[in-house]
Design a protein around this nucleic acid. Sequence first.
DNA 1: CTTGAAAGTCGGTCGAC
DNA 2: GTCGACCGACTTTCAAG
Lengths: 152, 152
Amino acid sequence: MEWDEIDKKILTLLQQDAKQTTKELSLKLHLSVTAVYERIKKLERSGVIEQYVALLNKQKIERNFVVFCHVKLTTHSKETIVEFEKDVKKLHEVLECYHVSGDYDYILKILVQNMEAYREFMVTKLTTLKHIGSTHSIFMIGEVKNSTHILI
Amino acid sequence: MEWDEIDKKILTLLQQDAKQTTKELSLKLHLSVTAVYERIKKLERSGVIEQYVALLNKQKIERNFVVFCHVKLTTHSKETIVEFEKDVKKLHEVLECYHVSGDYDYILKILVQNMEAYREFMVTKLTTLKHIGSTHSIFMIGEVKNSTHILI
DNA sequence: CTTGAAAGTCGGTCGAC
DNA sequence: GTCGACCGACTTTCAAG
């Protein structure tokens, strides 16, 4: 799909605030409501805009303990990888999981309540997964930046 | 702020799809439109709901090259830390930055177009920041999971 | 791309329980 | 806390230029 500067601007604005009305957007973009509406629908249909979500304040919901966990598998067969990835997807504490280059196979971003909850998560969930070789946890001391906004 | 099971359910639903109308939510929750409306407003006012955003498909906007960069600073004075954090926040390629425990001081999640763009980013942006000691890049081979949904 | 009009839906406020 | 009703504003679709 092709898009121009106006589409980029729309995506920027919607990444900042998805609750803006098309009327507000039309004023900012100096376009008609219909034009903005059609462009947004096109971006949604084409899949560029994947979803609209509410982002929560991690502190206020007491889920502020972020851990990066590097995971190494015991073997690296297709079946092992597929099974591990299927299992890890089910863990709601794991917000992100990436297959990566380097010393470890995967990086997991895990969000729990506190160290106790993390211990519980490791003992009862992560380390019970099949094919887990070793893990290495890096704990967040402070969040400097956390954004979903991709500059286009 | 205190909240009950209904509030939790609302937060879950809005984290999945923020474009649902209060009417749709009221049907799912077996409540009146007004009741749902008031609860959402309370969650917004209290700051539990931080913002509503559009999430984009990274592949379709050709910004699919994810790198985790571990950064070590040269010194660790208050001024050094404050300045580094201020500078790194300005880099739009850095979506996330965490001060962490362990061998490195910071973990950065960086999103760029490709390896070439990453090289350019490193040479012209990240390594030009003051107080940068060493860096270690881990490249994403595949995305297994990437969610903003926090289970409450 | 624009404007304008139409129909239906929704947000936000109200008084009442 | 809950509800139903109200109205202005909004979305969405359409035709026409």
